[in-house]
């Protein structure tokens, strides 16, 4: 399988990365080189093989459903580019 310029632009949109026409053209070639390389996986017979879900066999750890952490709003917003009274500020999303 290979991608065309339109697909690259669509994927960039899904990934929320702005791309120029020139970027998209360069990426098309690069992505096709990588997709060409991974193509060889199709020759592997995977009939009856389960997809891997965990590399080490382990049971999911559980804990009591209680609050163990919190009350650190100032820490959480400390690195944000724009805040007001412990809220993250973003451009208007609802008209």
């Amino acid at each position: 399988m290979s991608v065309d310029l339109q697909t690259v632009k669509r994927v960039a949109r899904l990934a929320r990365i702005a791309v120029s026409e020139e970027d998209a053209e360069r990426m098309t070639g690069e992505l096709n080189a990588i997709l060409g390389f991974v193509e060889q996986l199709n020759e592997v017979d995977v009939s009856g093989v389960e997809p891997m879900t965990s590399v080490t066999p382990m049971e999911m750890k559980k804990r009591q459903d209680i609050v163990t952490d919190g009350n650190k709003a100032a820490d959480i917003v400390a690195n944000a580019p724009a805040t007001e009274e412990n809220f993250f500020l973003v451009p208007k999303v609802v008209e």
Binding site: T7, V38, N42, P51
Partner: peptide
């Protein structure tokens, strides 16, 4: 480049062909 590849292989219609196949090969 890697975000784009990842987004593509996980996108609707390609998940089985790429991601699922790769996870099966990983088990092998």
């Amino acid at each position: 480049r890697r975000i784009m590849i990842g987004t593509y292989v996980l996108s609707a219609g390609y998940y089985d062909a790429y991601y699922l196949q790769a996870q099966k090969v990983r088990n092998l």
